[in-house]
Amino acid sequence: MNNPIVEKYFRMDNLPHIWCPGCGNGIIMLALAKAIDSLGLDKDKVCVVSGIGCSSRAPGYLDFNTLHTTHGRALAFATGVKLANPELEVIVISGDGDASAIGGNHLIHAARRNIGITTIVFNNNIYGMTGGQYSPTTPNGDLGTTAPHGNIDRPFDIAQLAAAAGATYAARSTVYHANQMEKMIETAIAHKGFSMVEVISTCPTYYGRKNKKGSAANMIAFLKDSFIDVKVAEKLPEEKKAGKFLMGEFKKEEGVVEYTVAYESIIERLKK
């Protein structure tokens, strides 16, 4: 028996998905479908765009206008789609490597323009599709197949990166906090302007195994225990915040003119 949300929004013929047992990506994909359902969006007017990587396979399973592009370039393709047809609700699905390494330039510029695209980053802290190489969000000191002696890179905070670059909505959640995550995605899609929801996912196959993080369930329990909402954290003493990570809404700025609206106003002005 299937979940009615799955039947309504998924391409049933393309399931099961290719993700490993214990992977957190499916939780995010379902949350996206639920958020779209709550908003009552017309499926014909939703366009989901992705790059390359594990998470970027999601659009193939979702019953919308879907575009699986080249590595890192989802936001650049999506910018063309959104500007050429602003009536489409454009949602980008990207991984940590896709969005912040090879696609980092497109991320900061899409945020800077405040174009009405919602970006959901499935952050599993590793390159999964290619077999476990360190990504821009792999914690310092952790192991990857290309960091066999420990990662000496310092990690990006993707949500804060987008906020600093000009995103008018930036939030972070985890695959443990599925209900909160769904609400954030809903808020992000409804938001007029560039919105970013970074979701911490789990990769037990590569990141987890390489770094001895235990089972998939252990990894999700770690998210439960380690993430605290930014609003809660404000009231906590320093010692209670040690070793914790922040989630929640970091930025929500209303009233900044959205890019395609600004362009339409040029067209209107030239008609006179």
Binding site: T79, G80, N85, L88, N105
Partner: peptide, 20 residues
């Protein structure tokens, strides 16, 4: 649209083409 680089230029152009 003036994109942030050459790669984005063709990517956005493809996106535009897909909307008809």
């Amino acid at each position: 649209i003036q994109m942030e680089d050459e790669i984005a230029g063709i990517a956005a152009a493809i996106g535009g083409a897909l909307t008809g």
